[in-house]
Design a binder for these strands. Structure first.
Lengths: 344, 344
DNA sequence: TTGAAAGCGGTACCAG
DNA sequence: CTGGTACCGCTTTCAA
């Protein structure tokens, strides 16, 4: 391996000068600079990141932590982060957490010491404990998809999103609207499903509808689980005419359950998802779009900015807009609802 | 930041001893070891990765390079790699390449100097040039999904896979079988689509069928492009009764084209994909399954082994098995083919 | 403008 | 079994 010393010798200068040239520091005569650059090219010299990191006290690395690469939304956010970091001089160190035990170890471990200069947490809002440790580490942190007071964050208003979806169904004339979401999660403290549920409740309340508790079901995340939950809903004597789900993935499960029961969508059942993953368009799913890729990109940019200014900037909180994307899984209710009208 | 020196002072020993304890080196009395460990805990000491890297001459990092995180198959492989590296002491440094220019810079740059101790290339078989540079760097490399003579690799027999899919269709009685795949790619040198096409040709030849060149179409990767290509195929006067595609994603496009023309699948058209991504099951797509996650995991394990032994092991080449997964998009041909029979 | 030298925080060898 | 010390390769004063 050729070192900075080799370059210095070859160029006939001191190592300090070579260092200055490498780092574009001022105070080097252009003649000397030239000579050094020639030597660098001739030797094919590359500075050692490790030596640099040790000497400068920073790793030129950003730690990215995410749960479950099985979730399209997480992958899409990760893509955004990668893109946002692309032009920078930072390496991206990736860790995933799939269990609560991993969680703390990873989140903090990733940026301890000079391992990383900053961290991006995707869909992993830090617990109080983690926040404290993270703050102790002293590196800037950006949380994507998760509220925090402690760090900068990129979020969306999930409550508003839940309201958006529900209001869409209300406007179409639905009154019996169900919700399928994630079970409360102590392990990861994901809150988006709950928030979307809150928005759903708000919308129903504002419409003067008593939310039927039987129509709110939660279970493990995933298509299959959602299909099971939806099945129970659809087998109800007085089944809902519409379902709002906490994610597109779960909406797919609902569609599956409807299909297996011979129910027409949107004729017999309207379905609204959340996220607008690629699949949603493919399936013609009505959904609430959130800018997933964008959220990652913005997080990277924000962190880069934080890394730029000397002092830590106090909480930058970016909130990205949500939009309803009407497609082919929602329509006016018919059947039961219609039949009931004369009776009322 | 507390350093090894602080620990040494607190424990009343030399730094060498602390180092030995940290690294579990032999030759430390248990009494001393205890004292040191206590000091470490008391101080909350963590060794500096940068200093370690510089001193040991290795970064404890593995570089992972992949194209397009938009492709489910790539993400799935990446998941495998992450899982395989999980228990190890290595960090995972991720880079993606989306353009040919990025390609070389990334692939080689990632493991230059002490940046990484080894590299995993996902779906990016190195060019001769890249291989040369990579070899010059001297770190072990494992290529996932791509043939190489230069490095260890995890592959599948794509030719056999193409044959598998085609033979399945032949057995069902199809004679006019089309192929939809990726256009030849000079930029990334992906070969899997071409290999699968070769297998398709082999199978037809063995069945004594003259492959109709009009039935082989290629275009940019992706569902929409595939839908367009399939559209042309389906509008043919003598349209195929079955289509084999180079990926599930493309198969989805074919299904879309069929649906938009009111063709029944598998009644009017049989479709076979490749990969068996999650979506394939959801759509009931008949496909050739390849162990994507597994390929990543195996790559990580292989690299870890390579990193373990002092000498570089000469080419370890693992070939993973392919299996046909029959679902609901393939069946016996009817219509045109049947009608033609009396005429022949 | 430039060279020399003191770290950065470990590892590993060498005496003892 | 243990302490002392010379690196690892770079950055960054400090003098000149």
């Amino acid at each position: 391996m050729t070192t900075i010393r080799d370059v210095a010798v070859k160029a006939g200068v001191g190592v300090g000068t070579v260092s200055r040239v490498i780092n574009g520091a001022p105070g080097v005569s252009s003649r000397t600079r030239d000579r050094v650059e020639r030597a660098i090219d001739a030797l094919g010299y590359r500075p050692s990141p490790a030596a640099r990191a040790l000497s400068r006290g920073r790793a030129s690395t950003i730690a990215v932590t995410a749960p479950f690469l099985t979730r399209p939304s997480v992958v899409e956010r990760l893509r955004g982060v990668v893109a946002g970091l692309d032009a920078s001089e930072y390496d991206l160190s990736l860790a995933t957490v799939e269990t609560p035990e991993q969680r703390r170890r990873r989140i903090v471990g990733m940026c301890q010491r000079d391992r990383a200069d900053g961290a991006i947490l995707i869909s992993l809002p830090p617990t109080v404990d983690e926040a404290r440790m993270l703050r102790a580490v002293g590196v800037p942190v950006v949380v994507v998809d998760g509220a925090t007071d402690d760090f900068a964050s990129i979020t969306t208003d999930d409550v508003a999103g839940g309201r958006l979806a529900t209001e869409h169904l209300l406007e179409l004339g639905h009154r019996r609207i169900a919700f399928v979401g994630d079970e409360p999660d102590e392990r990861f403290a994901f809150t988006s499903s709950d928030d979307r549920l809150a928005g759903y409740r708000d919308a129903l309340r504002d419409a003067g509808i008593d939310a039927d508790p039987d129509l709110v079901v939660t279970g493990p995340h995933g298509r299959e689980a959602a299909a099971g939950l939806a099945g129970r809903l659809l087998d109800l004597a007085d089944r809902p005419t519409a379902v709002f789900t906490a994610s597109d993935t779960q909406a797919l499960g609902v569609l599956e359950a409807a299909r297996s029961r011979g129910l027409d969508v949107p004729g017999d059942l309207s379905v609204v998802g959340f996220d607008d993953i690629e699949l949603a368009e493919l399936m013609g799913l009505t959904t609430v779009r959130q800018p997933l890729f964008e959220s990652g990109r913005r997080a990277a940019e924000l962190l880069l900015r934080l890394l730029g200014r000397d002092a830590a900037a106090e909480g930058d909180h970016v909130e990205l807009a949500l939009t309803l994307v009407p497609r082919h899984t929602t329509g006016r209710p018919r059947g039961r609802t219609t039949r009931r009208r004369p009776a009322s």
